[in-house]
Computed example of a mutant assay.
Amino acid sequence: MQRLILTLCLYLSTGYALAQPLTTVPQVDLNRYAGQWYEIARLPNVFQRKCVANVMATYTLREDGDIDVLNQCENKDGKIQSAQGLARSTNPPENSRLEVSFFNVLGIRPFWGDYWVIALDDDYQYVVVGEPDRDYAWLLSRTPTLPDETVAKAIAILEAEEFPVDQLIYTVQKPRD
C-alpha cells in the first residue's frame, strides 16, 4: 500500500511539474487595449460553437477601471449572436492577467474565466490571449486579417507556451451585407 501511495504521489508531482506557468506580457495599457478586435484564430470552445464567421470583441473601459465586453459572431444562418460581459484586472497595475464573466444574476457574477495576455504587439495591433490550463486561446487583431508571418509568429508563441496549436480554428472574416 505504501508503494502505491508513493507511486501515486510521484506521478502527481511529475504531472504538475510538467505544466509550465503561463508567461504573460509585462504591461497592458487598458486605454490602448480598449476598442474593437477581430478574431483571427481560436482554440475550439463550447461558448463559440455556433460561431462560423465575423467574430469580434469590443472592449470599453469603464470609469471604475473594469471593462465592458461585447462579443459578436455570425452563426451558420447568417444571424449575429452577441454576449455581453465584464472583465477586470487581477494584477493591477500590470493588467496582463484579466478575468472575464458573461454570467450575471441580479448583479452578481459568480463565475469568472482567466483571460491572460501572453503576447501583445507594441502598437496594440494584435494580441495573443490564453489561460493557464491551455484550454482556451485567441489571436485577435485590429484588422480583419493579419499577414501570414504575423500569424506564424503568434502560433509559435502559443506552441512555445504548450497550447495545442494543431486544434486552432481560423476565423472567416467576410464583408457584411
Results as ranks from 00 to 15, higher is better:
Gly113Thr: 08
Leu10Thr: 02
Trp112Tyr: 12
Cys51Phe: 04
Glu63Tyr: 07
Val105Arg: 10
Val129Ile: 06
Ala19Gln: 15
Glu99Cys: 01
Val117Ile: 11
Thr14Phe: 14
Leu86Tyr: 02
Tyr126His: 13
Thr58Asp: 12
Gly107Val: 03
Glu131Ile: 10
Leu140Pro: 08
Asp135Trp: 14
Thr90Lys: 15
Leu70Arg: 07
Pro26Cys: 07
Ser82Asn: 12
Arg49Ala: 05
Leu43Ser: 08
Tyr115Trp: 06
Leu139Ser: 13
Asp68Ala: 07
Asp133Cys: 03
Val128Asp: 04
Gln84Ile: 10
Cys73His: 01
Asn45Asp: 12
Arg32Ser: 12
Arg42Ala: 12
Leu61Phe: 08
Leu86Thr: 03
Val28Asn: 12
Ala83Gln: 15
Ala41Ser: 06
Thr14Ala: 15
Leu139Gly: 11
Trp138Phe: 15
Lys76Val: 04
Thr90Ala: 13
Ile40His: 06
Asp135Met: 13
Val100His: 01
Val28Gly: 10
Tyr136Glu: 05
Val28Ser: 13
Leu106Ala: 11
Asp64Glu: 03
Leu43Glu: 11
Tyr126Gly: 07
Glu74Gln: 09
Ala41Asn: 05
Asp29Met: 02
Val129Ser: 01
Asn71Trp: 00
Gly15Thr: 13
Leu70Asp: 02
Arg88Tyr: 10
Ile118Gly: 03
Asp123Ser: 09
Pro21Thr: 00
Phe103Cys: 09
Asn104Met: 09
Tyr136Gly: 09
Thr60Arg: 13
Thr58Cys: 04
Met56Cys: 06
Leu43Gln: 10
Leu61Thr: 03
Ala19Glu: 15
Phe47Arg: 11
Ala53Cys: 09
Asp29Phe: 01
Asp77His: 13
Asn91Asp: 15
Tyr16Asp: 14
Gly65Ala: 04
Ala57Gly: 01
Asn104Arg: 10
Gly78Asp: 02
Gly85Tyr: 02
Asp64His: 08
Ile67Val: 11
Cys9Phe: 15
Leu106Trp: 12
Gln48Phe: 01
Arg49Gly: 00
Pro144Ser: 07
Gly85Thr: 01
Lys79Phe: 11
Ile108Leu: 15
Ala137Gly: 06
Val52Pro: 10
Gln84Leu: 11
Leu12Glu: 02
Arg142Pro: 05
Ser82Thr: 14
Thr60Trp: 06
Arg42Ser: 10
Phe111Ile: 15
Leu12His: 04
Asn45Trp: 01
Arg42Asp: 09
Asn95Glu: 08
Pro93Ser: 00
Ala53Glu: 05
Leu70Thr: 06
Asn91Pro: 07
Pro110Val: 11
Asn71Leu: 04
Cys9Ile: 09
Ala119Lys: 14
Leu70Lys: 08
Glu99Asp: 06
Asp29Glu: 09
Asn54Lys: 03
Val25Thr: 02
Glu39Ser: 05
Asp133Ser: 12
Glu99Asn: 02
